[in-house]
């Protein structure tokens, strides 16, 4: 096993932990953090797999994709926090009801 696969496998595990958290955690703040963890996992996989080039320079395209992905993740997190803050102000509750309607 090379370093590349080790990092990529770590990314897969982070993705799994994040997905578990998004579904299982009750508190919304935790869910948002879990979502970010999931994203970090995907980014780590992209960065690790970009390092499989024969020379010493990694493939720049996945790096650019990760930068784009990070910006998207920041935007989504900011919007989630804005929603969460407003919801908390209106209800004083930090999680979602089970009844979806």
């Amino acid at each position: 096993m090379t370093t590349v696969t080790l990092y990529a496998l770590c990314g897969v595990i982070l993705f799994g932990i994040g997905f578990y958290g998004v579904i299982i955690c009750r508190h919304l703040l935790r869910k948002v953090m879990a979502l970010n963890l999931m994203g970090t996992g995907v980014f780590l996989i992209l960065i690790a797999l970009a390092r499989r080039t024969p020379g010493d320079r990694p493939d720049p395209v996945p790096h650019a994709m990760v930068l784009t992905g990070i910006v998207v993740a920041v935007s989504a997190t900011a919007l989630a926090l804005a929603l969460l803050r407003r919801l908390h102000r209106e209800t004083e509750i930090g999680d979602l009801p089970h009844d979806a309607k």
Binding site: M1, T2, A8, L9, L49, R52, D59, P60, V61
Partner: peptide, 12 residues
């Protein structure tokens, strides 16, 4: 991930 080709330069 383990089944991926070990060396691949993509668009580099």
């Amino acid at each position: 991930i383990l089944a991926l080709p070990g060396e691949e330069s993509g668009l580099a």
